[in-house]
Amino acid sequence: MMNCEEAAKVCNKLQYKEASLWEKIQLKFHLLICKACATFSKKNNRLTTLMDKAPLQCLSIQEKKIMEESLKTEP
């Protein structure tokens, strides 16, 4: 049987669609018997929906490096 720590990890993996079928089945069973993890899983799913809804973009680390360099050379 899966413990809560593993369940949380699989739940996180599931948010990025990286959990295997066997892991998913085990998680489902764990969520049936564990109230705390069920709540966590629900919140986690909600967070993913929110992240998908928000039109967020970000600069890559390289682009930031270039910015930092040009800021240093400027003054």
Binding site: L56, C58, L71
Partner: peptide, 10 residues
């Protein structure tokens, strides 16, 4: 850059 670049960019 580390703290605000993404925020300003968005």
């Amino acid at each position: 850059v580390g703290n605000y670049a993404d925020y300003l960019y968005n």
